[in-house]
Structures are given as structure tokens and as C-alpha cells.
Design a protein around this nucleic acid. Structure first.
Lengths: 339, 339
DNA sequence: CTGAAAGCGCTAACAG
DNA sequence: CTGTTAGCGCTTTCAG
């Protein structure tokens, strides 16, 4: 039975070697003879010894902890991403220390400061905007930072997003091809780059077809906000098609349309979302939506972050990943096209 | 602009006091004169100093890190719980280090071992079964452990669950009151205590009414498993009501019933779930379900864990929280009762 | 290859 | 109240 807490010194004593020999055996880039290594491992196993990560972090300066800031765990996109992120990092020997950021902007600064206190090797900020003061502090502390699903047009700071402008265009083109001309948009939180870019791409494509938004409401990326936005938008003379800034809101929009307004989708109104969260594929919604390839986004985030962790001179990058429009049943098909 | 990494010694030098004085100013139970404190704070602010949590952890033996093991982040119950847990812990000055456990049982042991390496002050294991060997290791390491939403009938180990047996009964009683007699059950993963207890309460109440299960299939707590279970169950002579071991599966069951089998809910078949995740309230499902009070469960988990963290002699406890049946539209109402 | 020795940044007695 | 002195458990020169 393992002792209360076993130190390398105790293992050393039992194995009849020096404490530093024990350390070497448990350090990847070690240099210990096979004989020593074996003696040490044996003693370690008997004592139930495992190196203390914190002590190791102190001296080596590497904690193997990555700080993660998240805000919206109710939007299915994030739990899914978090799971993948954590798994990918675990595979590389890192672990994730979670920090919940209340939506309040002021709070974020405090959160990141706390993260830094833990001497994390890097930070992933998912869907939160950071003040430039803050990014400066990370830089000053020598802690690489990568923004996930949010961009902050500064070449100084790494960000991984989908190609939101192109995605917005795809949504518009699909609606246009189906012959819609009265088209509405339900916006996310206006401070978000995803919101801005998706809307930009969408309206730009509309404009190229000589159209402008029939109506626009803000849903704040919340279900409640989206429901109310829908009710306002369809109070009178509603559009025949709506592009919703993310799936999370799109579900609320569809529910409001169907169950509060008695409209049929897509007969009365076409709906397109953004993200392609798992639920979008469920038959109850069958949501046509622009996919954000979560796995590839996560993979990029991890490789970008770790490359900066391992080489502090590595330059920040902005990665934009393209995702397809996934056609399901919530929006009318282009003319002449059948399922 | 803050330096690369500022130490208390540098602050001390700048403030013209000893390094321990700086430490005291930043330690809650401190004892420093107002004058000293002010000088130190001033110097600290100018230098951008913040205490190194890891160094503090080394000497104090308290890392203020809580390890969390989770498996199913796609079941909405867990992201919600995680968010609350993390927030509650943050409020107490702790932070959560996340460890994803692949469903594979053998893996869990390794995961917990890794957690221990980080010298966490406590562990929350959400929905995973731990080997007794493992709980012993936690005990040996002096790290309190509490099981969340899973029980392990051993008085030695703390667990917070809803009253799953009572919940199962409530589901049965409701179905019985509605006059159903051909009743099916879709089970979760059979290794889970939640599955076992819910089924036990359910069938026991049925038995008291002189009934037994018309049919039973296992859905493994996955959507895919639930869909297939439903198809098998209704291949011929399906039941007129089904109790599904959790909401996550219930959604898949409802989808299969409606869109693959063409049945109406609740006209053709009543469905009851368990958990009351946010989505259960959405009109597309309007799922009648037994609520697991996530907020109270989390609150209990935190208080139980922290009481053990702060006082290692505190006895383990099993907390069982009662939740109501939330009546919505997916199951027929008891005779004579109208919405 | 291996042991001895010097800290990483901080808290906790210990005298004063 | 304050400074001095030990370490926490480990990695890492530095000799040998």
C-alpha cells in the first residue's frame, strides 16, 4: 500500500542510490544505466512513488498546465470542443485548468490574471474577447495565448476560427438559389468577431445579388434572446427565410416559429444556422447549417499553442478553417434540386 | 509594464522590506502593519507582482486545485453541472483541473493517478466508476474524493446523487395513474448505479401494482444505443409507454418513435425521461421527466468536498437529493387530469 | 554514469 | 510586527 506521500528521496534510500538518480530515471531525457533504472523503478513501484508535478514545475518552469477560459457551456459547440481539446492536450502530456468567465467583460481580466498565477504554459480563450492590456500581460509573462472561435484582428495574437465570412456567403447563396428574396438575419452578440464576420459575408453576398436584409434582429447568442428576436421579426410582414448566427439560437428560432407562430419549416420559412452541432442533425430540427469543423479547429489550436509553448519565438498565426454548408431539411432547396 | 516574471524578493527589494513581509501581505491570515502593507502593495502593483500559486502550494501543501474526471460531455447534464461546479469552486478560491476519461474502465485508473500527480486538494468523479484499488490510493494520498451522480455502496466513499430509486417510482406511478399497463423500459449502461437504481424503483412500483415490464432493452446511455433499443422494442407489439433511463437517450427514443416509426407522442406512446436537462423543456420535445436538481447536487458536492479538504477527519457521506417529476407533454396525463 | 550541492518562489516557525 | 532561517520535492549544473 502506497505511503501517504512518497518522495524521490525515500525511493532513493530504498534503492540505494542518490536522489538525483531517481529524478533522472523519471525524467524523459534521462541518462541512467539500465541497472540503476531497474533498481529505482522497483523501489518506486513498491513505495507507490510518482513524481510531484508541481515541484517539477517549480524548477523546470514548465507546469504542463494549459489554462482554458470558456463562457457558454450551454451552447453544445463548446462542450464538444472542450472534450476534444482536453483529450488532445492529454495525449501530449498537458492538462486543462478550467476558468469560467461570466459574460461580463470586466470579469475576464481577473480570470486571466488568476490563470497566470498558476504558471500555466499556455492559454486557450474560447469565445471571449480579451482586452489588449490582458494580451500584453500574457506576452509579458511569456505565456502563449490562442483565441478559439474568436478573432481579434491583430497579427500579434494567434486565433483559430472557421472562415466565417465565407460561411456567411454560403448561407446567402443557398437561400438565394432557392429563390428567396425577403431574407432576415438574427445576429449574435455584436461584440463577437464571429457575429460580425458571418453577417458581413452574408450581407455582402446578398448585396451582390442586388438584395439587402429584409429584417434584422439581435439574439445575443442566447436562446432567450433568439426567441424574442424571432417574435419581433415576425410580428408583421416577416421574411421568408432567416439566417441565424449560430445553431444554438437557431433551435430557439425554429421552436418559436413552429410552436408560437404556427409556421412550417421550410414551407413557410427557411432557416439556416451556423456550427453544425450534433443536435442539428437530429430529425426534430434537421437544420441546414454551416459546419464549423470542431475537430480540425481543435487540432489546429493545440498544434499552434504547443508550437508556441515549446518555442517561444514562434510567430503568432491566424488560422481560418473552411467548412461546408450541410444541407438538411430546414431550408428550401435550390430550384430544380430534389433531396 | 510587468516584468517577465516577478518574484516576492524583487518586490521586497523595491519596497525596502524583507521577502517574508511581502509574503505576509499576500497571505490571508497575515499580520503586517498598515504601513508595510501599503509599501508592499505599491511596489507589487508597479512591478505587476502576483504570488506564484505553485510555489505556495509546494510549501503549504495546498494546491487549491480540484481534479475533475468526466466522461460524457455530450449529455447536456454534464456541461451544465461542470459549469456550476467550476463556478462554485472558483468562488471558494479553487480551480478545476479537467481529466477526460474514455469510457474504457481500465483507463480511469491511469487518469486518477495522473490527477494525484498534480497534488490536487480533492477529486470529483462525475459518472465514472472507480476501482476500489483507486479509492484506496486517494485515501492513501490523503485526497478526498466525491462521486457525482454515481454511487458505490461503500460508506467509505462520499457520493452525491439524486434519489434515483424514488425517481424511478415517480415515473412508474405517473404512467400507472394514466392507465398504462404495457410498459417498457430502456436501460442505461448496466454498470452505472443510476441505471440500477432507477430501474429498481421503477419496476418495484410496477410490481406493487401487480405489473411487470412489458419489454426491456438497453441503450447504454448513448443516443445510438437508445435509437437501436427503441427499434428493437417496437419491432412488434411495442409497449404503450416507455420509461427511458435518462433524457439524453429519451430524445433519441422520441426521434426514433416519431420519425422512424411514425408514432405520435403521447397519443401512441408515452415517454418519460430522467434528468430534466434544459432541452427537455424545449417545445420540440416537451419531455416529461424526473428532475435531477443539478444546482443542489453541485452545491452539496462542493460543500462535502471542501469540508473534507479542510478537515481530513470529516467522515464521508452519501447524499441523495430528491427531485420532482416534471410534467410536460410527452406522457399521457393521469385519468381525469387536464393540463 | 552518478552523487553532491544549489536553488525554483514561497510559507512558516523562530527569535528579536 | 518584522527579519532571518529552514525547507516543500524536484531538476540541474558540477565534479568525479
Amino acid at each position: 500500500m502506497p505511503q501517504f506521500k512518497v518522495t524521490s528521496a525515500e525511493v532513493a534510500a530504498k534503492a540505494g542510490v542518490s536522489q538525483s538518480a531517481v529524478s533522472r530515471v523519471f525524467t524523459p531525457g534521462a541518462s541512467a544505466s539500465a541497472r540503476t533504472a531497474e533498481k529505482v523503478r522497483k523501489a518506486a513501484k513498491e513505495l507507490g512513488y510518482r513524481p510531484n508535478v508541481l515541484a517539477r514545475a517549480m524548477v523546470s518552469g514548465k507546469s504542463r498546465i494549459i489554462g482554458l477560459v470558456v463562457a457558454y457551456l450551454d451552447n453544445q459547440f463548446y462542450p464538444v470542443a472542450l472534450e476534444r481539446l482536453s483529450n488532445a492536450l492529454q495525449a501530449e502530456g498537458y492538462h486543462v485548468l478550467i476558468f469560467m468567465a461570466s459574460q461580463t467583460a470586466g470579469d475576464i481580466d481577473g480570470v486571466v490574471a488568476e490563470i497566470l498565477d498558476y504558471q500555466v504554459d499556455g492559454i486557450v480563450a474560447a469565445s471571449v474577447a480579451l482586452s489588449s492590456d490582458l494580451t500584453a500581460r500574457c506576452a509579458a509573462a511569456g505565456v502563449p495565448l490562442v483565441l478559439f472561435n474568436r478573432d481579434q484582428d491583430s497579427a500579434e495574437i494567434s486565433a483559430v476560427t472557421s472562415d466565417n465570412v465565407a460561411g456567411g456567403r454560403k448561407a446567402a447563396e443557398f437561400l438565394l438559389a432557392a429563390g428567396h428574396s425577403k431574407i432576415g438575419y438574427i445576429a449574435g452578440w455584436e461584440g463577437a468577431s464571429t457575429q460580425r464576420d458571418r453577417e458581413f459575408g452574408f450581407t455582402e453576398a446578398l448585396a451582390e445579388a442586388g438584395l439587402s436584409l429584409h429584417s434584422r434582429e439581435v439574439g445575443q447568442y442566447t436562446m432567450q434572446g433568439a426567441r424574442e428576436a424571432t417574435l419581433r421579426m415576425f410580428a408583421s410582414d416577416g421574411p421568408e427565410a432567416v439566417f441565424v448566427a449560430n445553431d444554438h439560437m437557431a433551435f430557439a428560432v425554429m421552436d418559436a416559429l413552429r410552436y408560437e407562430l404556427g409556421l412550417s419549416i421550410p414551407q413557410d420559412v427557411s432557416v439556416i444556422g451556423y456550427d453544425d452541432v450534433p443536435m442539428a442533425a437530429w430529425p426534430a430540427y434537421s437544420l441546414t447549417t454551416v459546419r464549423q469543423p470542431a475537430n480540425r479547429m481543435v487540432a489546429q489550436t493545440v498544434s499552434l499553442l504547443l508550437s508556441q509553448v515549446e518555442d517561444h519565438t514562434a510567430a503568432p498565426q491566424q488560422v481560418r478553417i473552411d467548412g461546408p454548408l450541410v444541407v438538411r431539411g430546414s431550408a428550401k432547396l435550390p430550384k430544380g434540386q430534389t433531396p
